[in-house]
Amino acid sequence: MFTYLLKRLIEMIPTLIGITLISFFIIQLAPGKPTDVLADLNPKMTPEARERLEKYYNLDKPTHVQYWMWLKRVVKLDFGDSFSTDRRPVWTKIKERLSITILINSLALLLIFIIAIPIGVSSAVRPYSVYDKITTIIVFIGFAIPTFWFALLLMILFGVNLHWLPISGLKSMGYEGFSAFGKIWDKVNHLILPVTLEAFGGLAGLSRYMRSNMLEVIRQDYIMTARAKGLPETKVIYKHALRNALLPVITILGLSIPGLIGGSVIFENIFGIPGMGQLFYQAVMMRDYPVIMGVLTIGAILTLVGNLLADIGYALADPRIRAR
């Protein structure tokens, strides 16, 4: 088990270097320089000042040299300073916003897990029944609904028409004056819509996947054995079949993390949540290279850590892997 984890951990390093390498070169390939935006903002900027600036940020060096210098700094968690007017270190900026993005994504992942699995199992137990057909239709609709549009619809319904939920930000006005319970309640209220929507995107796929896994497992011989020895059907389904059908789902959960993180750009933008997605969006609009690279790297690390956690979960659940 320990050597397995160590191996997985070591395998992560070349992948991470590969990700940063690809990101770095793709961004550098694009025409236009980051100093373009600075020059646009400041019409008084002379070509000499611009050159000085490029020298300061090492933009005059060839791309592979820039990458090497960047990589050497990143190992020490130093992503450089932001190009934006505040000139703050990128890592500080990311740190402020990391926790809320991780919170929303973990809650969403949890919600997907809690809802998708019972749906998948219950429709697999009665395949081609009315219930199964209805869930299939809902899944198809879930696949096709653009989540940002669904977000707007829910905002209109719950925020504008019913006034049940706030539609923007993380805190209400006068948040500081609330009691401790009031503060928590306020935060929960602000998180309901973003978390629900973030989860909604992954729900359809996972429940479908769970259904086909379950159908496969139910056909196995050991299920027939369990039934033949007279076990109650609930025990056959929830103890014998479910455990085995769950295994591949763990991996799928790990694989769905890049999508979730990518989706946070849209949700944080719609709901005005000050998270990593919003930071990235602002950085992209300003061509703030250091922040863009920083967020891409952190996003990739989160993805790899998520995959690693999924592997650990898999190993814990499956004795065959644990033995290796």
Binding site: I22, A30, G263, F280, L296
Partner: peptide, 22 residues
Amino acid sequence: RFVDIMLSIPTFFLILAVIAML
């Protein structure tokens, strides 16, 4: 290996970054 790496980049981030540069 390249495919695996591409799959673990949050693609939407990458698309955003490239489009904004172009």
